[in-house]
Amino acid sequence: MKLCLVVDDSKVIRKVARRILEELRFDIEEAADGQEALDACDRNMPDVVLLDWNMPVMDGLEFLKAVRAKEGVEQPIVVFCTTENDMSHIRTAIEAGANEYIMKPFDREIIEAKFSQVGLI
């Protein structure tokens, strides 16, 4: 099974994402901010990171830049999942090396469609 790291400061969102992704046969790890996510990547590199933008300590974009600087562009696959839904945020994320972008609110179909586009399903 592939490992997905779910990064979001909302426990509720992490729970919803976990339920959907477990149904899609992913192993799940959780992190509440970008720093926790970086630590989790150091311990055990996930196949994919589902990444919120606005979080305390370290936000999603900082995490993305840090992980790309350290690990290169191949791994992990990063799918943003945020309420930021304007074109300039989307462009910024993609230019920083995000592979896909989900605008909240999301449902199972959106997660499934986006994960299949980046070749995870």
Binding site: I90, I94, F106, E109, A113, K114, Q117
Partner: peptide
């Protein structure tokens, strides 16, 4: 927003 996220790659949305 829902419709453009079902199947459309983000690069094509942009």
């Amino acid at each position: 927003q829902f419709e453009v996220q079902r199947g459309l790659p983000i690069q094509m949305l942009i």
